[in-house]
Design a protein around this nucleic acid. Structure first.
Lengths: 248, 248
DNA sequence: GCTTCCTGCGAACGGTGTACGCGTTGATTT
DNA sequence: AAATCAACGCGTACACCGTTCGCAGGAAGC
């Protein structure tokens, strides 16, 4: 307001205002993550982001080349939240499991991650992603795993696919304004109908529905599903560890 | 007014043109898929799509409620390309492998699939997706798998994560205008630098680089990586088959 | 004949990303 | 102390976007 009018009167001189925290790349990225977390990737616009920082939209371009670049920065920033344990006394399965769960947690906290990765891929080599990869490589190398990079790729692909789907689902739930349980209940009739006439799918669906009823909480059920698949993969990888293998 | 005049001369009468194929939901979806395949999801605009069909942009809205709905239709249409074998004499591993490879092939043919799924999730229950799911459920049920829906979820998550990453990578390659081999070669220096100082990652990276040199073709190397992870998962699942101890 | 529907479309609204050039400012050099 | 300069914030503008609305014209039913 007053800021728009440079000098209304010579007597009301600048006095520099309470010195805004200024505009910096870090501040922009941080605020962008806040917007993305709150309203998703399609709600992030340079104008709105600028407004939230008490700045014009185009000012952001002094610190960030392009919106896509900003998103890449946000992506890598968020990878920094993933802790990977040192390969230590604990067995490798526990370590890898913890890492994968951390990855999933981060993906669910920032539910835009999936769509961004789907568009940009993981080719961009940000420092935090590199750091996470390094820690994971350490985990597999420590137990003498024959092809660590393939093992990592396998595990991460699973985690990514699972978490992305989960995140998209949770976004849909949240947009509906209902709780997860309510949403699932409301979806049941449509699902029943879609499944009718499909013998095996109906059976699998019935099992899943029974699961849902038995579970105390949709979230814990999702945790269990995630852990199931992860254990399947770790079992498969364990067979490839040297020295403990019937045949090949 | 005169400029707007729809009929400059009576003789230039409409005569209905050579009867365009008209505008139908199917035709729109088909053309949308063509655009998506050619130029990706961010290049699909209602105006351009309309133009390609010799129609105005807003005409499309008579057949499709919204752009998002159109994309959902395209998504399900594309799922129709995935064949799933009947559970037959062949062993289940071969059947599941074939299905997963078909899924991957489709994802790589329509490289926008990943980003769309990341945004929309798989909650929408289109008929073709339901059909694919049914066939997969049949595959697992036929061998008496204890929790078919969890097995399916595990396998599909892996396939989705892997294919999405692959598709994003291929898109980047294609946009660069270089061949895949050239692109990888050009990326090497940056990757080397990013990996420097990361002990285990450097090691894994060296292995991967050796792989790349040994492979005759980047595409066959990608195939091998995909099959590796898939086999890991199938091994893990095999352990859960009833009445059977691990066997290769 | 008249009426009622269905289809396509032009115009318009409120948004988007970002290129460009301007005024200001704080530090650095003279 | 004066002059220079690079960095910064921003207003404007452009080309495009998805979508709404009301209208034109033909087809179909009566």
């Amino acid at each position: 307001m007053a800021a728009k009018n440079p000098i209304p009167s010579v007597w009301a001189r600048p006095q520099r205002a309470p010195e805004q925290p200024a505009l910096s790349r870090d501040a922009i990225v941080r605020e962008a993550i806040a917007v993305l977390d709150a309203d998703g990737v399609e709600a992030l616009s340079m104008r709105k982001l600028g407004a939230r920082l008490n700045a014009g939209a185009t000012s952001l371009y002094r610190h960030v080349a392009t919106k896509d670049e900003l998103i890449e920065l946000a992506l890598d920033e968020v990878f920094g939240e993933i802790p990977v344990p040192d390969p230590g006394a604990a067995d490798w399965r526990a370590d890898v499991t913890a890492t994968c769960q951390a990855f999933r947690t981060t993906t669910l906290r920032h539910r835009w991650l999936g769509s961004v990765i789907g568009q940009a891929g993981l080719v961009y080599l940000g420092p935090n992603l590199v750091a996470v990869s390094e820690r994971m490589a350490a985990l597999f190398s420590a137990v003498g795993f024959p092809e660590p990079s393939r093992a990592i790729e396998t595990v991460l692909s699973y985690v990514l696919g699972m978490s992305t789907t989960e995140a998209a689902f949770l976004t849909t739930v949240m947009r509906s304004g209902r709780t997860e349980a309510e949403f699932i209940a409301g979806l049941m009739p449509a699902a029943q109908e879609a499944v009718a006439g499909h013998e095996f799918l109906a059976e699998a669906f019935a099992d899943a529905a029974a699961d849902a009823v038995a579970a105390t909480d949709p979230a814990t059920l999702r945790n269990a599903k995630f852990d199931y698949g992860l254990n399947v993969i770790l079992d498969g990888l364990a067979l490839r560890l040297p020295g403990r293998q019937p045949n090949s």
